[in-house]
Design a protein around this nucleic acid. Structure first.
Lengths: 200, 200
DNA sequence: GCGTGCTTGTCGGCCGACAAGCAACTTAGG
DNA sequence: CCTAAGTTGCTTGTCGGCCGACAAGCACGC
């Protein structure tokens, strides 16, 4: 009857799996019931452990949130290094939208964590404030070279970066509130056209 | 020493002032400490009443939040009725950005409430989901006439509406996380140029 | 004196954190 | 190999704190 459900595992394996399952459980809870539903009891139960598992592995609620935010970094791949200027901006925008399409659950969780940071969660604020600044900066840099090599319209790089980051984040957030997914092909095409002509 | 601080007021005046002061206090608490800091005790004290004032006037926390969301409607004035198509879209966008500039505290509070809705607050979700849909729809309508009268590029109206609403909301949310206000004149000009050429 | 606005007392529920104890794994001596 | 002591992972018990809601009582206006 035992069906070998428990082959002997090393302590490192046990620890690693527990952390993985706890983070996955936190994503599930957020996606289904919101960031406010992330309690030790809820996450522990969802992960198949006790309510003490989060404290044991992450020390505090803040520790869990930070690990969660870190685990969601790198969801959107960077644009190819050989691209720059206007082309790089458009490629990065499309990659972002493609990630919204292909990883709906995780981008939704990311959006909800970002929203919680905005709403005032002191644990999340510094993390996402820094991320935002970096994200804007990456666009601003590409826009500066676009202005230099003539491939960009005469737009202020910092203002345009805020607009583009706002567009991407704003679309992601709206998707949390709409029940059925939109037509992503049309959305990507429309935004590519809108920004493509707008930038040059 | 009494300096006539309490001339005799009618019951209706007392009630109206209490409600006004409670809503104002809630805005202050949100703006300074986040949506999570909105408790009966905090809001009551800030308004100069007891912790029971919120229950007495709004019945529940949900009632307060709904009244708060309602009180923030109409912050952004509608575009002139005689405008339509591409012109109307651009006018509405600029009015939104102008409101961010001229009512920083209240638009910040609105953004934080919207974020809390996204993050999963069940009281706020339906309110803001409907607002979003209406907002997108107003842009989609104008974009449809733009497509019909030839003043708009061949953009899908619904997708473009989601992009524009996303841009506006996204910019508003970013402003919550940045400490110093940006150069609004440049921001408005840049976005006007970006969307102006992008739409036609 | 009567009604309405407001306050205070109080209850039940939930949460995060810590500490002590139990279970799984590792290692070293025989 | 075998086993027993030691280490690490995990759970359970428990504490203090905060919150929302309701009800009874007090104060202001009619």
């Amino acid at each position: 009857m035992t069906g070998a459900p428990t082959r002997r595992r090393t302590q490192a394996e046990r620890r690693a799996e527990a952390e993985r399952r706890v983070l996955e459980a936190a994503r599930e809870v957020i996606g289904e019931h919101g960031v406010g539903a992330v309690t030790f009891a809820a996450v522990g139960a969802r992960a198949g452990y006790s309510r003490g598992i989060v404290t044991h592995h992450f020390g505090s609620r803040r520790g869990l949130m930070e690990a969660l935010a870190r685990s969601l970094q790198g969801l959107v791949p960077p644009a190819p290094a050989e691209l720059d200027g206007r082309e790089r901006v458009l490629a990065q925008v499309d990659l972002y939208l493609a990630t919204l399409e292909h990883h709906p659950r995780d981008t939704r969780v990311f959006a909800m964590l970002w929203a919680e940071a905005i709403a005032g969660d002191p644990d999340l604020r510094p993390i996402f404030a820094e991320r935002d600044a970096d994200f804007r900066d990456s666009f601003a840099r590409a826009l500066r070279t676009a202005a230099a090599d003539g491939t960009g319209a005469g737009l202020d790089p910092d203002a345009a970066a805020m607009a583009i980051v706002g567009l991407l984040r704003g679309v992601g957030l709206q998707l949390v509130l709409v029940e059925k997914a939109p037509d992503f092909a049309r959305l990507r095409q429309t935004i590519a056209l809108l920004l493509g002509t707008g930038l040059g």
